[in-house]
Amino acid sequence: MSGLNINLEHGPKGYVAEELITGGQVVAPGANGGVKVAAADAEVVLGVALVDAGPTDVTVEDITIARPRRTSVAYGGVEVKLEYTGMLAFGDTVGVAEGGKVKKHAAGAKVGIVTAVPTTTHALVRLY
């Protein structure tokens, strides 16, 4: 009989950023095992990026600033405050909007459920 490796950790999990990612954006699997910003109505999502990251450093005039290459991704039962588009209400199920934001679910993967009355720009979402 084979043994199973049970993972009791509920995140976050670190991934290499395959494009510029801002903390709070919904992310999807990238082409090379990393993550990218999830497209609107994405069918597959991994969770929400917790920190900014990107594949390259940023240069401002003659100064180069190191940018983290990896981002932590929250998932599975974690509550995060996310920027949303359109109208959201307490108890709504959310999906992915343009730019990795969330919106009331209409198509694609279900990201989570709104667990408190949203402000005008952000909603507290329990991730699936």
Score class of each variant (00 low, 15 high):
Val44Gly: 01
Thr115Gly: 04
Ala31His: 01
Val78Ile: 11
Gly34Pro: 11
Ile63His: 12
Val102Ile: 15
Thr121Phe: 08
Val51Asp: 14
Asp62Lys: 13
Leu82Gln: 02
Lys81Ile: 05
Ala17Asp: 06
Val73Met: 06
Ile113Asn: 00
Leu50Cys: 13
Thr115Tyr: 03
Gly30Lys: 11
Leu82Gly: 02
Ala123Asn: 08
Pro12Ala: 10
Ser2Phe: 05
Val117Lys: 14
Glu83Asp: 12
Gly30Glu: 13
Val26Met: 04
Lys36Cys: 09
His105Phe: 08
Gly33Met: 04
Lys81Gly: 08
Gly33Cys: 06
Ala42Pro: 03
Gly23Ala: 07
Val111Ala: 10
Gly91Lys: 13
Ala28Ile: 07
Val35Arg: 06
Gly91Gln: 10
Lys110Thr: 12
Leu20Lys: 07
Phe90Pro: 00
Ala40Ile: 12
Val26Arg: 04
Ala116His: 05
Glu19Ser: 08
Gly54Pro: 11
Pro12Gly: 05
Ala109Phe: 04
Ile6Ala: 09
Val48Lys: 03
Val16Lys: 12
Gly33Thr: 09
Pro68Tyr: 00
Gly86Phe: 07
Ser72His: 05
Thr115Phe: 08
Thr119Gly: 15
Ala39Phe: 01
Arg67Leu: 15
Gly23Phe: 05
Thr22Gln: 12
Ala107Asp: 10
Glu98Gln: 11
Val111Trp: 09
Val27Thr: 09
Leu4Gln: 07
Thr64His: 01
Glu83Asn: 13
Tyr75Asp: 02
Gly108Asn: 11
Ala31Lys: 13
Val114Tyr: 01
Asp57Ala: 15
Val125Met: 05
Asp92Trp: 05
Gly95Phe: 00
Leu124Phe: 06
Leu50Gly: 15
Gly24Met: 02
Leu20Phe: 06
Tyr75Thr: 06
Val26Gly: 03
Arg67Phe: 14
Thr119Glu: 02
Lys36Val: 15
Ile113Gly: 00
Ala107His: 01
Ala40Lys: 14
Leu124Trp: 10
Thr121Ser: 14
Thr121Arg: 15
Ile65Arg: 02
Val78Met: 11
Gly47Asp: 04
Val45Leu: 02
Asp92Glu: 07
Gly112Ala: 12
Asn7Phe: 09
Gly108Arg: 09
Pro68Phe: 01
Val114Gly: 04
Arg126Met: 14
Glu43Met: 05
Gly3Cys: 00
Gly54Leu: 09
Ile6Phe: 12
Gly11Lys: 08
Ile63Phe: 13
Arg126Cys: 11
Ala97Leu: 03
Glu19Phe: 02
Leu88Asn: 08
Val73Gly: 04
Val80Arg: 07
Thr121Asp: 14
Arg69Gln: 13
Tyr84Cys: 03
Thr59Leu: 01
Met1Thr: 13
Val117Asp: 13
Thr120Ile: 08
